[in-house]
Design a protein around this nucleic acid. Structure first.
Lengths: 359, 359
DNA sequence: TTGTAAGCGTTATCAT
DNA sequence: ATGATAACGCTTACAA
């Protein structure tokens, strides 16, 4: 294992002092070095193969140039996409991404945050974590006090965040089904207190109301936001005395589970039953028939969250401020009151929805 | 933002010197402190809410207690599982996991490794990276020289690693299909030089040979290891003058793509064509019919890789050594010549395979 | 323009 | 048993 090259080595090689090298390599806008020495230093660094020691830099600057991400569940491709999007932006801005174990329940999340904080993390992206609940946890609250936080798909509150237009997602699903002539609509989603899911449900119900329809409690099925959950819920739904003609699922995983349950029960989709998912993960196009769903820009969500975080880290004056969504524009000062812009979603009509058969 | 509590603060609060606190909190086996002061220090740390600064510790110890993972593609759930498995073990051992952007091609991988090295990473898990090619890249080679490396699903060589029994995977698929009476077998897999894929193919072909069968070149289709690739390859296969009665795909994504192509072409699976995938990702059970596949323990693979890495980091004498697979047993010195144990795979017969119809 | 010096929070090696 | 003291590699005043 070859010893690491330090600034000191470069300095000796270039015949200058160590801080001078630091100045050159840090190419600060204000610091001015003689072109000659600058050249010499750069050449020395080059030939020696100098790599800055980020750890040492962190110690003095107090910044680690590392970000944490917390997602509920890596088994859900949606969250993986969010992470991937965040990673890309973070890497471009020179930040590393620390992946936390799964789980955003207050207990687990608090533990993760605690270790992240010990690592001098500069900021953390909380995806679908229940921020309000989290703030109640003593450990979490303490950890959260020390870092910059950006929320993904959470209601605006103490921290800034980015979110998709989940209300519209539910509405679009409902309107699509209504336009196809469906009047007997059901919803399958988790009971968990996750903002995006709640909003999808709410948007769906609101659109039904607007059309003069109600959602009978028997057709509002609670299930974990997984394929297994969707399957089970759909089985229960099919066992009902009165069946709906269309079902909106809180996400694609649930919808695919529901689709499977239909296949198992011999219910033809979309002939006998229409199905709409939400997220538009790759899986949606892999099942047969392909899933009609509402596209939510997961990658973009992650990317924006990371960008927002990086921006706030760059401008310390904003760091302590309360959430203002997308944050100030790179140039001028945007009004602090601006509501978080919701990323648009759109309905992707595919193979699991069709016109309702005349009752 | 409350100022961080340092050892110094704790020392003042406990009325002792700062190194003493370090001694107590580090609870070294050799260091002996008076029970009284120990108590006082612990109490002070407790009330003040002291959290060690990992960055400072890293600077002096030269270890960052962070690991990197490099995977080709986060869109493939298999790799996500590997990462998740690694994360769990790493976290338990007190290591953080730095997630690198996707891509294990020499160029991208080298860049990732370079930044990881700057962060004083202690080790890196290379999943399905072409280690041989990577070592040819100047930047990568330099980076690789500075860290502990563990390979996942790569042939044993310069670095230790863990791998699944990919040869057996191919063989099991072939034997399953042969047992069902199939004699016209095809393979779809990537041309990319990825060890596991090559071995799966080889195992498959070997088993065919053993049964006195050959794999005609027209039935050996090259395609990217994605659903889109599988779809395209299967379309091409179905367009052949002579069709196979069964197809083994390099992974589940490819198989699902193939399944879709069959559905689109009106070819009934498994009645007209049997399909076998590989990996057994969740997706395999979500499609209809459920995919017959070969289960590869992805999570376990990641977990073992992380464990191996952590072990080697704990015992420096092994760190510089060449690869010896699973490494020495925690207790005694295992022979250096021990071949890497391959994690067993097993065939999961589900809905995409059936007896061959009499020709 | 450049070198000197201090200090970031630890750990580790000494004296005491 | 415990307290000075010196690193670790870097950034940032401040001096020269």
């Amino acid at each position: 294992v070859p010893a690491r090259i330090t600034l000191h080595d470069v300095a000796r090689h270039a015949g200058v002092s160590q801080p001078t090298v630091s100045l050159v390599l840090g190419n600060h806008p204000t610091a001015r070095v003689a072109p000659a020495t600058r050249e010499r230093v750069l050449a020395a660094a080059q030939t020696l193969g100098y790599r800055p020691n980020v750890v040492a830099r962190s110690l003095v600057s107090g910044r680690s140039y590392a970000l944490g991400v917390l997602v509920p569940d890596l088994a859900n491709p949606f969250f993986v996409e969010v992470v991937a999007g965040a990673e890309r932006v973070a890497a471009e801005a020179g930040y590393a991404l620390l992946l936390c174990g799964e789980g955003t329940e207050p207990g687990r999340a608090a533990a993760h945050l605690d270790t992240l904080l010990g690592r001098q993390i500069d900021g953390v992206i909380l995806d679908a974590a229940n921020a309000a609940e989290l703030a109640d946890d003593a450990v979490a609250a303490r950890a959260l006090a020390g870092v910059n936080v950006v929320l993904v798909d959470q209601p605006p509150g103490r921290w800034p965040g980015v979110a998709s237009d989940a209300l519209a997602a539910g509405r679009l699903a409902a309107e699509h089904l209504l336009a196809l002539g469906h009047r007997r609509l059901a919803f399958v989603g988790p009971a968990a207190d996750v903002h995006a899911f709640r909003q999808r449900e709410r948007g769906f119900v609101q659109a039904l109301r607007a059309a003069g329809l109600a959602l009978p409690s028997a057709w509002l099925r609670r299930a974990p936001a997984t394929a297994a959950g969707g399957m089970q819920a759909m089985r229960a739904l099919l066992a009902e005395r009165a069946r709906p003609t269309a079902v909106f699922c809180a996400n694609d995983l649930v919808a695919v589970g529901a689709l499977k349950a239909c296949a198992a029960a011999g219910v033809r989709v979309p002939a006998e039953l229409s199905l709409v998912g939400c997220d538009d993960v790759e899986l949606a196009r892999l099942v047969t028939p392909e899933l009609t769903t509402v596209r939510v820009p997961a990658r973009e969500l992650g990317a924006r969250a990371a960008r927002l975080l990086v921006q706030r880290l760059a401008s310390p004056e904003a760091a302590g401020e309360r959430g203002d969504g997308e944050g100030a524009a790179p140039g001028g000062r945007a009004p602090r009151t601006a509501a978080p812009r919701l990323l648009p979603v759109r309905l992707i009509a595919r193979g699991t929805t069709a016109r309702a058969v005349a009752a």
